[in-house]
Structures are given as structure tokens and as C-alpha cells.
Design a protein around this nucleic acid. Structure first.
Lengths: 250, 250
DNA sequence: AATCTCTTTTTGTGATCACATTTTCTGAAA
DNA sequence: TTTCAGAAAATGTGATCACAAAAAGAGATT
């Protein structure tokens, strides 16, 4: 097991037509022994995008990332290609690689897709959850509150994702999970903006509702709680506030 | 514009522990001018998997495909990596690349996911469909019937996908489409089995129902028709028959 | 200052090669 | 015939290089 330091990565960010170099921090990520370079690059970038480390419109270069990750273009390119397949990045026709822009309409589509996918996944998971797993989920929910009160937005976000993931992954064939994560990735860059402007996170009480419903094995109630949770916000970020920010950015 | 011939590709197919070489046909695909080698490989393989050209468990090699596509390992590897990202292929721990196996339970999950995703996508498309687009959809539906009567299973399948795609893509932000295609890809290999064993395709009448509902702009009715269409079968293949085949294969 | 043109640099693409691991093949022993 | 060990072949991985296209920069002109 080998953990890696926090790298500084130069990304080119277009501002008013001019390209300016801007230092950016890639969150660190442990690299299990035996993991291929490509896999490491993929996971590292994926996680970075998911927690909002990149702004929409940011462009990255293969060689730049290869240098930052201390490897070569080949595995990085593979990682970037995979990330485009799941909507996290976009290869433009001029061959530039950018973090996709998000319009208010697209944002709304993504949120409604999250609701459809996740309420479905939650429903399909209910029958497979043990009491012990539910207790673990409740524990993660507590940790979200802790992080929110501590003001650590990234940690709160990651814990919130863990909360949802633990529910959906109870299904022995969690075929919806990769699709859900794809949507999370596409929403990630907005979170970066939200984290800059939203100072106050709110504690999520739909989670308690969901946990209670899980204990009762009430599929409809679980699905409803998850849907409401998503509709109201993204892990402590108020949905309406985020949408407002988005309209300003556009 | 340059179209390519029909290649024979050798794939290694494990049967009862023994590996045997089996010739397989990759459906041809036009290669637009300027398309990168990687993109071409990706699209070609993707389409092949989607229409059931590969059996579950089939394993492919980078060099083998590179030779078949008359290119080199690098772009092929990128294509394969992308295909794994969307669930079409799987890199095992021993580094072999295989078409994923499908259990009856996973099949059922995928079908129910299709229903959730596609009824949602259909609903979100209704408001954006013009009369002209609906007419085009009806025309594609007619072509499905034509292909079914002609007994061309692959053509019927492709036309059926076009029918669904035309509906969902009416949404100006079709964020659900890539996810839906991911599910189609995961179901593709089963279709290859189904095409071998199912001799009789049936004509789909839920499509008429969906078209009528589209004309009335009745979102609920559209969603219901699509859900029923999927529940009953996959583009002319009876769902129960496919599930039965799957249990036999396992 | 703004615009245009030409040069330089950067960047994505794809082929090739070396390396380590895995698989397959070969042949001897049980 | 089966089993096992060692050799040979095949395969995924990642670094490097040459090439073409795109972007950035420099300098002259308006």
C-alpha cells in the first residue's frame, strides 16, 4: 500500500477568451499495490471530478496530467477516454479535452434523472438490506452531520455519496450503480461552484426518513424519501441555490 | 467516406474449460472521413456487441482486434477500455478481456432498469416532439414490421433501437440516452443467444400505442406503453422465452 | 491599440518496443 | 490416460517517438 502526496496540477482555464494558467489541487488517493497506472489515473481523476475539483469548461491536457501523475501519456489517455465514456469529460472536435459545461436545462435534466435512477435503485435494494447494513447506513448518516457541522464540505459530500451508495449496493446485482455514478460525475463540476458560494450547509433530514422506511421494509416510502432528498439538495447544498448559481454562471 | 469490408475475427470462446477458436463476423460499419482509429474501433465493436455478435463469456484480445481492424494495440486498447466503462466488456483480474456473463437475476435487473430509465426518458421527451418527428417514428415502426416479416433479426433489432432512440433523443438534453445505451449493450450478448434459438419474431403492437399517446401528448400513457413494450420483449423477442434460454445457459 | 501573418510551441494520435505476467504447449513420469 | 513441470508463445502494460493539427506567440502593418 502506497499513499501519494497532494499534487498541484496546472489546468488551462478559459476566461473571457484568454487562457490563463491556474493551479489546482487534485485530492490525494491511496494507490493499492498492484493497481495499474491507468487504473490509478482513472480513479484519481474520477474522484477529483466527482467532488467538484474541476470547474465546468476547464480543459486538461494528456501530457500535463501524465506529468502530475508521474507517468506517461498512454495510461492517462486511456483514463481520459474512459472518463468521457461516463460523461465526466468531453473530447471536443478540435481535440481539446474539457470538463463539460452545464446549462440550467441540463442541470434540471440531470437532477430528474438522478431521482428516477436512485429511487428505482433504492426500491430494488430494500429487500436485500440486513439490519446490520441499515445500522451502518445510519452511522454514515451521522458522519454526514458531523462533517456538515465541522464545515468540511468535501468530506460531507463524500459521506453523502457513501450513504446513497451503501443503500444501492445492497442489491446483489447493482447494475444501476455505475449509471448513477455517471450522473454524479456530471453534476460534480457544479458542486465545485456551489462549494465556493454556498457558505451554509444544511443537515439532511430526509435521510432519517429513508432509514426509518428501510427498517420497515417499505419500498415506496424509501423511494419517496430518496426522491425528496435529491429534489431538495445535493448533500447539504440547497438545490434552488445551486440552480440560481448556475443561471448566473451562464 | 470509406466503407470497410466484412472482417472475420477470431475470438477465443471458452466451452467447458477448453478454449476453442471460433470464427465470428463483425458487422461492417462505415468509417466517416477524419474519424480517428480509436473512434472507429470503439463504434465498430460497440455496434457489434449491441446487436449480439458476441456471446457472453467470449474473450477478445487487443492484438487480435488490432489486426482485424488493421491498426495497432494503442487505439484498440482505448476503445476496449471505453467499452468496459459502459459495461459492454469486462477486464478480469487476470487481465483477460471478456464479454460479461449474465445470470437470470442480472437479466431481470437490467430489464427493470430499462423500464425505469426508458419510461422516464420517454416522458421527458413528449413535450419536445414535433408532429413531423412523430411521423418519422411511425415510419421507423413500419420498417420494424417489414424486417420482422422478412425474418431479418439483426435489422429488426437495429430498427427497434432506432425507434426508441428517436423518441428519447427529442429531448434537447438527452442525458439519459448514454445510460440507456449502456443497458442495451449489457443486454446485447443475450440477444445473440436469442437470435440463435428464437425462430419466430412477433410484431410489436405496443409501439402503435406509444405513437398514439405521443400524438395526444399524454406523458403517462407514453411512459406506460414504453414500459409495457420492454416488459413484453426485446424488439420482437419474447421476454419470457429469452429468460428461459438464459436459465438453460446457466 | 487592433489585426493580420508567419513562426514556434504545444498537443492529440497512433505505431513500436521492452517488460512482466499469464496462458498454452510439450514431454516425461505416474 | 492422467498429471505435473518446464519451455515457449501469447498477452496486457506502459514508455517513447514521429507525425500532423491546433494553439500560442512574435512582429509587422494598418
Amino acid at each position: 500500500m502506497r499513499s501519494s502526496a497532494r499534487f498541484r496540477v496546472s489546468v488551462v482555464s478559459k476566461v473571457k477568451g484568454h487562457a490563463q494558467l491556474k493551479p489546482l489541487v487534485l485530492p490525494p488517493l491511496a494507490r493499492p499495490d498492484g493497481m495499474t497506472t491507468h487504473d490509478y489515473a482513472f480513479n484519481r481523476l474520477r474522484q477529483a471530478i466527482m467532488v467538484g475539483a474541476f470547474r465546468p469548461g476547464t480543459s486538461v491536457t494528456i501530457r500535463g496530467l501524465a506529468e502530475a501523475l508521474e507517468s506517461s501519456p498512454t495510461p492517462v489517455r486511456e483514463a481520459l477516454r474512459q472518463l468521457t465514456s461516463i460523461g465526466a469529460l468531453q473530447f471536443l472536435e478540435n481535440r481539446r479535452i474539457v470538463v463539460p459545461h452545464i446549462t440550467p436545462a441540463r442541470f434540471e435534466e440531470l437532477i430528474s434523472l438522478r431521482i428516477a435512477l436512485e429511487s428505482h435503485a433504492a426500491r430494488r435494494a430494500v429487500a436485500h438490506l440486513s439490519e446490520r447494513q441499515i445500522a451502518q447506513i445510519a452511522a454514515v448518516d451521522d458522519s454526514i452531520e458531523t462533517e456538515i457541522r465541522a464545515g468540511d464540505k468535501v468530506a460531507a459530500l463524500i459521506a453523502n455519496q457513501a450513504f446513497h451508495r451503501l443503500i444501492y449496493m445492497a442489491n446483489p446485482d447493482p447494475v444501476a450503480m455505475p449509471l448513477i455514478e455517471s450522473v454524479w460525475l456530471q453534476l460534480g463540476p457544479i458542486l465545485g461552484i456551489a462549494m465556493e458560494h454556498v457558505t451554509e450547509l444544511y443537515v439532511i433530514d430526509r435521510h432519517r426518513e429513508a432509514i426509518d422506511a428501510l427498517r420497515r421494509r417499505d419500498e415506496d416510502a424509501v423511494a419517496d424519501a430518496i426522491a425528496a432528498d435529491i429534489r431538495e439538495g445535493i448533500g447539504g447544498f440547497d438545490q434552488q441555490a445551486v440552480a440560481r448559481l448556475l443561471r448566473l454562471a451562464a
